[in-house]
Amino acid sequence: MESGLNFIDLILEASVLVQLVMLTLVGMSIASWAIIFQRRAVIAEAQSDARKFEQQFWSGMDLGKLYNEITARSGSSKGLEALFVAGFKEFARHKKNNTGSANMILDGTHRSMRVALSREVEKLESSLSFLATVGSISPYIGLFGTVWGIMTAFIALGNVKQATLQMVAPGIAEALIATAMGLFAAIPAVMAYNRFAKHVEKLEVNYANFMEEFANILHRQAATLVEAKSNVSA
């Protein structure tokens, strides 16, 4: 025996405004899932690239050779490679010009790597704000559609002398679908945002730790160069 309340029919029979609310929520949900899959791939790639580069960096390979290999590739470097290239490029420039003390060289490389760090984190956080927005406003958009639908249903009952549950049920049911759609759009977006934000935070800490360790290596090399220069001048 059929209940008489079909999900598709309820959507088609809803008021125009409620249908627009539902259509908006469906669009937001589709966009959220597209971003979720895209960000998942980007963050997973960043994590994999970071592990591979750290293994290569700490293998004892000559830094100049590593820099040349990275810059010789087609396309721009990213992740830890971008920080390494920014720092080593600045270090090589000071070394070539033979200017400044070890601390001055370190300040220059640190600034270059901080800029690169900000850019890489910004790339990782791209579109996460959209997920946060969807997670925040979707339930309220759905609630608006529900309130409007229920209000419309009760206004229609004002023209009826004797109201029954059978008369009001379809109107309330179609209105509640908007709330369900709002939650359907919001829950995955919130869960994905929290998960991705946590991964980005871990990557940022990893990048910052590498930056400090690399800066220490360059500082020692700069100190050695400055000391050798002083001995030659003496």
Rank of each mutant, 00 (worst) to 15 (best):
T24Q: 00
L143E: 12
N103K: 15
M28L: 15
G27I: 04
A116E: 02
I36W: 08
G142N: 08
A156Y: 01
K161W: 07
F184W: 12
S127Y: 13
R195D: 07
M113C: 05
R220L: 13
G158Y: 07
S29V: 00
A189Y: 03
A178E: 00
K123Q: 15
G27W: 08
S48H: 03
G171K: 02
M28P: 10
G64V: 09
L17N: 07
F184A: 10
F37C: 02
E120L: 04
A222V: 02
V168K: 00
Q38P: 00
D49K: 03
Q162F: 12
V147K: 12
S136H: 13
L183S: 08
F7V: 14
T224P: 00
I105V: 15
D62N: 14
T164D: 06
A208K: 12
N194T: 07
K96E: 13
R195C: 04
I30D: 06
V160F: 05
G60S: 07
F88Q: 02
A223L: 12
G75S: 10
N6H: 08
M1F: 08
T71M: 00
A46L: 03
R39A: 00
A228D: 13
G87P: 03
N231R: 15
E13C: 06
T133S: 14
S29R: 01
N98R: 06
A178V: 01
K78T: 15
L225W: 06
A86E: 01
V85T: 08
K95Y: 12
A189P: 04
Q166P: 00
A175V: 04
F144Y: 11
Q56I: 12
A185G: 00
A14N: 02
L63H: 14
S118H: 06
L63G: 11
A116C: 06
L225M: 13
N103M: 14
W33A: 03
S77F: 04
L143W: 06
S112T: 03
Q166F: 05
L83V: 09
L83G: 01
K198G: 12
R114T: 13
S138L: 04
T146S: 06
V200T: 05
V205K: 13
N206R: 12
L23A: 15
H94M: 13
F57T: 07
G158W: 04
M181K: 05
E90P: 06
V85Q: 00
E213T: 01
K52Q: 14
A50L: 11
H199F: 05
R51N: 08
A215H: 10
A153Y: 00
E174Q: 14
Q221W: 11
M113P: 01
L12F: 01
A208C: 03
E125G: 10
V121C: 03
H199C: 03
L225S: 10
T152Q: 01
R51A: 05
V200F: 01
I43K: 12
D49L: 06
E122A: 11
L128P: 10
F130H: 08
P139E: 02
A186C: 09
I43D: 14
A44K: 12
